[in-house]
């Protein structure tokens, strides 16, 4: 359970990226954060594992006060939070297996890292994950030989290798085409539910957010301006988050889908794509 209260971030330039943000994320729930560019979505995600140091506020992961941790304890807390990035951020020149196992770095010492000698159960978990995300047989492929969608599958697997209590996902589909985006979101949401791991996902695509999340948080200029289920995201709400615009096409696209990620995937990808583009 993640509990954020009164979180603010002011960058040294004086720009206030987050203003008094409070919300909680618990149980296996996929929560997406939407909002215009520069609304503070990335800053918010990065404050939670302190890749960015917040200015004020409180972040509790279960009973751990994240902002009070010293460097060593922060490393232990970070092991519990898997992060997935827009640009995948894989180590390009290493193999898929090495990238997956890097998710275990917080648990192994330097000499095991040096010799790439990871415990057998970690390797077994990596193979199982590769099969689950549809990358069986890719273990010795170098990351730079993969397509965008494949890279993001590796990115997701690396985060899950940590056996995290929370997934922090920063624009996972922004570099991908619409079809691959949907596939990646589906895998992500399925895995989050399967493993009972709550996920906090930044998305700039409102349609994707509405189809794949249990709850949506709208961020505007560093403030939470909406927090509720996807069905409640109306034209008025979008205007509140993004500003005045004709939302009829965005809304209709969403209403064309039943929207629950855990529904059976009987339809082919092609028909889903046509639907989403209709």
């Amino acid at each position: 359970m993640l509990k954020i209260s009164g979180l603010s971030k002011v960058y040294p330039t004086g720009a206030a990226a987050l203003k008094n943000v409070s919300f909680s994320v618990g149980e296996p729930k996929v929560v997406t954060i939407i909002g215009p560019s520069g609304a503070g979505k990335s800053t918010l995600i990065r404050c939670i594992n302190r890749l960015v140091e917040p200015t004020t506020g409180k972040i509790m992961l279960d009973d751990v006060d994240i902002l009070a941790l010293n460097r060593h304890d922060l490393r232990e807390a970070r092991r519990r939070m898997g992060m997935i990035f827009q640009e995948y951020n894989l180590v390009e020149r290493l193999t898929v297996m090495e990238n997956l196992l890097s998710g275990r770095l917080g648990y192994v010492g330097f000499w095991r890292t040096y010799g790439r000698k990871f415990p057998a159960e970690d390797v077994a978990a990596a193979f199982a994950l590769l099969e689950r995300v549809g990358l069986s047989g890719y273990q010795n492929t170098r990351a730079d030989a993969l397509s965008g969608g494949e890279r993001q599958r590796v990115g997701i697997s690396r985060a899950l290798m940590q056996k995290p209590d929370l997934l922090l996902v920063d624009e996972p589909t922004a570099s991908l085409d619409p079809k691959t985006s949907r596939q990646i979101m589906r895998i992500l949401v399925e895995l989050a539910h399967e493993r009972g791991t709550p996920a906090l996902v930044n998305l700039h695509d409102v349609g994707l957010a509405q189809s794949f999340s249990d709850r949506i948080i709208g961020l505007r200029s560093g403030e939470v301006v909406f927090d509720g289920p996807p069905e409640q995201v109306t034209a008025q709400v979008l205007t509140k988050i993004y500003g005045e615009e004709d939302w009829s096409t965005t809304i209709r696209k969403v209403e064309g889908e039943s929207g629950k990620p855990d529904k059976p995937h009987s339809e082919s990808e092609e028909s889903m794509l046509r639907e989403s583009l209709a």
Partner: peptide, 12 residues
């Protein structure tokens, strides 16, 4: 970005 990713796994 890669450094961020490795740091976020709790690596030393």
């Amino acid at each position: 970005g890669v450094v961020e990713a490795i740091e976020s796994t709790g690596a030393s």
